[in-house]
C-alpha cells in the first residue's frame, strides 16, 4: 500500500511539473499511465471517472483525485491531489515575486507561443481518448459531434451539455 501510494505520488508529481496547458491537457497521459501502463483500472472506468468529475463543481484537477481514489481509496485520492498540485505550488510560492522581471523576457513569450499548439493537440487527444474509452456506438459519436459543434458556436453553460448527456444516456439514446 505504501509503495503503491509512493508510486502514485511520484508519477503524478512528475506530471504536475510538465503540465503545460493545464490539467485537461494531461488526460491522455493519465489514461496512458493508469490504464495502459500500470493497469490500475480499465478504460471504461477512466471515462466514468471523467464523467463524474465533469458533473461536479470544483477545480478541474479533481478528476485526478477521483483517479487516485480508484487506485487506492481515500488515501490514494489525497496523495494524487497533493502530487498533482504541490510541486508547482511550492515553486510558484518562491517564484511569483520575481515574475514581473521575466514577464517581458523574449524566451517567456517564445515558450507561451510554443505551448499553445501542444495544448491544442493534447486537449483534442483528451476528447478522442474519452470518446474512445466510453464505449460509444454511432449514436454516442453523433452526440460528441453535436456537443462539439454547439459548444463551439454557442456560449451555453457547460452544465447544460452534461445534463443533456446524462438524460440522453438514461433514456437509452446513446
Amino acid at each position: 500500500m505504501i509503495l503503491l501510494l509512493l508510486d502514485l505520488f511520484v508519477q503524478f508529481a512528475i506530471l504536475n511539473v510538465i503540465a503545460f496547458g493545464g490539467i485537461t491537457a494531461l488526460l491522455p497521459e493519465l489514461h496512458r499511465l493508469v490504464v495502459e501502463q500500470r493497469m490500475w483500472m480499465d478504460s471504461t472506468t477512466f471515462a466514468h471517472l471523467f464523467a463524474i468529475a465533469q458533473s461536479a463543481p470544483g477545480p478541474n484537477l479533481l478528476v485526478v483525485s477521483l483517479i487516485g481514489w480508484k487506485v487506492a481509496g481515500i488515501p490514494g485520492a489525497i496523495v494524487a491531489t497533493l502530487a498533482i498540485s504541490l510541486p508547482m505550488s511550492v515553486f510558484i510560492y518562491v517564484f511569483y515575486r520575481h515574475w514581473e522581471r521575466f514577464r517581458t523576457a523574449p524566451w517567456r513569450a517564445a515558450i507561451q507561443v510554443g505551448v499553445a499548439p501542444l495544448a491544442v493537440g493534447l486537449v483534442c487527444a483528451s476528447g478522442w481518448l474519452i470518446a474512445a474509452s466510453a464505449g460509444l456506438d454511432y449514436r454516442g459519436v453523433a452526440l460528441v459531434v453535436v456537443c462539439t459543434v454547439l459548444m463551439f458556436y454557442r456560449h451555453w453553460h457547460p452544465l447544460w451539455y452534461i445534463a443533456a448527456g446524462a438524460a440522453a444516456g438514461a433514456a437509452g439514446l446513446v
Binding site: G135, V145, Y161, I162, G165
Partner: peptide, 17 residues
C-alpha cells in the same frame, strides 16, 4: 448516464481544443 455524460464531455473537450 455516465456514458452520455462522457460523450458530452468529449464534445466539450473537442470544442475547447
Amino acid at each position: 448516464m455516465l456514458r452520455g455524460i462522457a460523450a458530452a464531455g468529449a464534445g466539450l473537450l473537442f470544442a475547447t481544443g
